[in-house]
Design a protein around this nucleic acid. Structure first.
Length: 490
RNA sequence: GGGCUAGUAACUCAGUGGUAGAGUAUCGCCCUUUUAAGGCGAGAGUCGAAGGUUCGAAUCCUUCCUAGCUCACCA
């Protein structure tokens, strides 16, 4: 109770000793329920001895009768309190109980004149006193900042918000069940690491006092999951909370959930086929159809999804054949000649060839991709952990699933050749030496693991939060995360 | 970081230079079928913060804080 106590709070605080004087506990230790609220709401009339508990979210008095609602995230149930049934407890309710309090009630299931399932109570128990008033009942919280900072209030007040987060639970459970039923094993890999590897991104750095070393919060679980494959697990996955010290906006969070799985003996084509199955299963089970509506956009996951190479896509969208330009200088010259400008924060003149191609793709192609499309065969220098294509050594056996202009999935045939991996790391180091920020650290421990031998592997990663935003028609990722990071109020 | 917008009672919002307002909520009274219940009455405010202009500032000016949207970069 940091701030000053205003009138309404004082009124409620003053009730706590009165609650005790009346023989209740203001903060009881337990309540034996026979049903949860949404279960009780499905019982037949006449069932007696029903005991339910919840937060009071509405309360209306009519002289010697009162109606109210108990609610939780799963549902709500109306309760009726009649003075001639509960006796002296009626006045206790009136003088001690407020909207926002938790109570437990026991009574009989009835249906009111207006047709609503109701528990007509014989008695109630006080469970927990709320000393602050809930937001206004009709509008709830509309200030987007308050909704994020005080998500619990948003959940109490907004059915839409409750449904969104329940859907998140269902999405994650559906994916987990699907992977489990396909013989994947869920494992955990470290969050604190010595190297920020597995992706191209700026990490959070923290410090371990006892070891006196700086450690990184992982940017991806990739290299550890592959170590598990080397150790003999042959299908693994992890819902990996990952951390990137970069922008923070509607489509980027500093900590987000990255689902990755790895399967030994698959290549990227097996993986694309599996991806289609996974998504069909997910969307059909959670949304009941294969079409999603996101804002004004309709997205169809039906049918076979197009598979197009990075080169063909860029050629189609801006007429540049990236295979014709083998150095970054030649490519940059061509990009400038076509009049394509990147208003990039990073210095384009320092970017490597791969980074340039990536910028080009994000500028001319990606925004146009609405329905799911597999983009394949990315430039080698953008994919230091992916296997080289057997026909064209400038590209890798990689795919991204792009939906609504978002990279939802990134996957490839994993590089398991330790000599090639060592040379890729060296290339990354060179690019960094030339000023390219978007590079990967050399990870010698990972390399050594690979030297002991890894089977063929295909790995896969998906930003869960983005997928959930797509499936819940949420315009910002912060709407699908319960408690997003906010600058503290000082 | 740039541009635009916003911050007034616990909550939702009016109020554009002249005594700080409404609804919800709270407190008191009436009411046994309501569900944004209703009726009568009352209390509740550092108008985001600091400075300035003015006889007088929620209102005009400056700076700052916070947030949302948006643009550029990152999943």
């Amino acid at each position: 109770m940091q701030e000053e106590i205003h009138e309404q709070m004082k009124v409620r605080l003053d009730k706590i000793p009165q609650i005790k004087d009346a023989g209740y506990h203001a903060y009881a230790d337990r309540f034996e329920r026979t049903h949860r609220l949404h279960e009780a709401a499905r019982l037949d009339d006449g069932v007696k001895g029903v005991r339910v508990a919840g937060r009071i979210v509405g309360l209306r008095y009519f002289g010697k009768l009162a109606f109210g609602h108990l609610a939780d995230v799963e549902g709500k149930l109306q309760f009726a309190v009649q003075k001639n049934k509960v006796g002296s407890q009626f006045n206790d309710l009136k003088s001690l109980v407020d909207i926002g309090d938790f109570i437990g009630v026991e009574g009989e299931i009835i249906t009111t004149k207006t047709g609503e399932k109701t528990i007509d109570i014989d008695k109630f128990e006080f469970l927990s006193k709320s000393v602050r008033t809930l937001p206004e009942k009709f509008h709830g919280i509309t200030d987007p900042e308050l909704r994020l900072r005080k998500r619990y209030l948003d959940l109490i007040m907004s059915e839409e918000s409750r449904e969104r987060f329940k859907k998140r639970v269902k999405i994650i459970k559906t994916i987990r069940d699907f992977l489990d039923s396909n013989d994947f094993m869920e494992i955990d890999t470290p969050v604190l690491t010595n190297k920020a590897s597995g992706a191209l991104a700026r990490p959070f750095i923290t410090h371990h006092n006892m070891l006196d070393i700086d450690v990184y919060l992982r940017i991806a679980p990739e290299t550890y999951l592959k170590r598990a494959i080397a150790g003999g697990f042959d299908k693994v996955y992890e819902f990996a909370r990952s951390f990137r010290n970069e922008g923070l906006d509607a489509s980027h969070l500093p900590d987000f959930t990255l689902l990755e799985y790895y399967c030994a003996y698959w290549n990227y084509i097996d993986n694309m086929n599996f991806t289609e199955k996974l998504f069909r299963h997910l969307i059909l089970n959670v949304n009941g159809g294969l079409e999603l509506v996101y804002g004004d956009t309709k997205i169809s996951f039906d049918g076979e999804w197009p598979r197009i190479s990075f080169r063909d896509l860029i050629l189609r969208d801006c007429g540049i054949d990236i295979n014709m330009f083998e150095t970054r200088e030649e490519l940059l010259e061509e990009i400038n000649r076509k009049g394509i400008r990147f208003e990039a924060e990073i210095d384009v003149s320092k970017a490597g060839r791969g980074t340039l191609i990536d910028l080009l793709y994000k500028k001319v192609s990606r925004p146009q991709l609405i329905n799911p499309v597999f983009i394949t065969h990315h430039p080698l220098d953008l994919s230091p952990l992916a296997r080289k294509n057997d026909e064209n050594s400038l590209v890798v056996d990689r795919f991204q699933l792009v939906v609504n202009g978002w990279e939802v999935v990134n996957a490839y045939s994993e590089l398991v050749d330790p000599l090639d991996q060592a040379s890729r790391f060296r290339q990354q180091a060179e690019a960094r030496a030339h000023g390219d920020q978007e590079t990967m650290d050399i990870d010698n421990e990972f390399l050594e693991c690979m030297e002991y031998g890894m089977p063929p592997i295909s790995g896969w990663g998906m930003g869960i939060d983005r997928m959930i935003a797509l499936m819940t028609d949420s315009s910002t990722l912060r709407d699908v995360v319960l408690f997003p990071l906010m600058r503290p109020l000082s």
